[in-house]
Computed example of a mutant assay.
Amino acid sequence: MAFKSLKKKRRIQVVAVAAVALVISTGLIGYGMRDGINFFRSPSQVMQEPPRPTEVFRIGGLVEEGTLKRGQGHEITFSVTDGGASVPVVYAGVLPDLFDEKQGMVGTGRYINGIFEASEILAKHDESYMPKEVIDALKAQGVYKEDEAGS
């Protein structure tokens, strides 16, 4: 009888240690990814509920026509739109070759004092590609048409 209770205790200890290890590993993974998780927002969502200045997120849409301006050095300003709202963007860096007005883009950065300060800008990489999040945001505003994507 003592042998059975010893086996039962050992099994409970193993399960308890496994549960604690699972909780700790989940916590460490979450802690490690805290800066690597960037939520996507459309310009309409940004204007309705502006994020905190410390929050890093991705914004996507079309580069609004007539807003692309190159400043001194590598600073570029433009507006990104989903047809429902427009958000001004400032970016200091080299833009991708395919970046242009009326083209799809996704930027990563922060929304500070009414301006999206981008740390990274991505543009569509061929004639028919646009990020899924951008397509969904444009469809929600009634701006996106299937034939524009070459589908």
Score class of each variant (00 low, 15 high):
Phe99Asn: 09
Lys4Thr: 09
Ala18Ser: 13
Val23His: 03
Glu148Arg: 15
Ser5Ala: 03
Gln48Cys: 04
Gly61His: 00
Glu64Arg: 05
Glu148Phe: 13
Arg11Phe: 10
Val80His: 05
Val143Glu: 10
Tyr129Met: 14
Ile29Met: 10
Asn38Gln: 12
Gly93Arg: 01
Ile135Thr: 10
Tyr31Val: 00
Met47Arg: 15
Met47Lys: 13
Phe3Cys: 03
Lys7Trp: 13
Ala16Cys: 09
Ile59Phe: 00
Phe78Tyr: 10
Met33Ile: 06
Gly114Trp: 12
Gly32Phe: 10
Tyr31Arg: 06
Ala137Trp: 03
Leu138Cys: 02
Ala18Gln: 12
Glu127Ile: 10
Tyr144Leu: 14
Ser44Tyr: 10
Leu68Ser: 00
Gly109Ser: 04
Glu101Ile: 10
Gly104Ser: 12
Gly104Asp: 12
Ser128Pro: 00
Met1Lys: 05
Glu49Ala: 14
Val134Leu: 11
Gly60His: 02
Tyr144Asn: 09
Pro96Cys: 07
Ala19Thr: 14
Val14Ser: 03
Val15Ile: 10
Ala19Cys: 11
Met47Pro: 01
Val134Phe: 13
Ser25Asp: 05
Val106Glu: 11
Phe78Gly: 02
Ala140Val: 05
Glu55Leu: 14
Glu75Cys: 03
Glu55Ser: 05
Glu127Trp: 12
Asp136Ile: 15
Pro96Asp: 13
Gly107Met: 13
Arg41Phe: 11
Lys139Ala: 08
Gln72Cys: 06
Ala123Arg: 02
Glu65Trp: 07
Gly107Asp: 08
Gly150Met: 03
Glu127Val: 08
Gly32Lys: 04
Gly109Ile: 11
Gly114Arg: 14
Gln103Trp: 09
Thr81Gln: 06
Met130Pro: 07
Ile59Ser: 02
Gly107His: 08
Glu120Met: 08
Gly142Ile: 06
Phe40His: 09
Pro131Phe: 04
His74Phe: 08
Asp147Pro: 01
Arg70Asn: 00
Val80Cys: 04
Glu101Gly: 04
Gly32Tyr: 01
Ser128Gln: 12
Ala118Asp: 14
Ala140Trp: 04
Tyr31Glu: 10
Asp147Cys: 01
Val20Ile: 12
Asn113Tyr: 10
His74Gln: 06
Ile76Val: 14
Asn113Gly: 00
Phe78Thr: 03
Gly109Gln: 06
Ser79Leu: 06
Leu122Val: 12
Ile12His: 08
Leu122Ser: 15
Pro131Gln: 10
Ile112Tyr: 08
Arg70Lys: 11
Ala18Asn: 03
Gly36Ala: 15
Lys124Gln: 13
Thr26Phe: 13
Gly32His: 14
Gln45Phe: 07
Lys124Val: 07
Val56Met: 12
Ala18Val: 15
Ala123Val: 02
His125Arg: 13
Gly104Met: 11
Asn38Glu: 10
Val23Asn: 05
Gly109Pro: 05
Gly150Pro: 06
Pro43Ala: 04
Asn113Trp: 11
Lys145His: 09
Thr54Met: 07
Arg11Ile: 05
Asp147Ile: 11
Lys69Cys: 08
Pro51Arg: 08
Gln103Pro: 00
Arg110Gly: 04
Asp82Ile: 07
Gln48Arg: 12
Asp82Val: 05
Gly83Phe: 03
Arg11His: 00
Pro43Gly: 11
Arg52Trp: 04
Tyr129Pro: 01
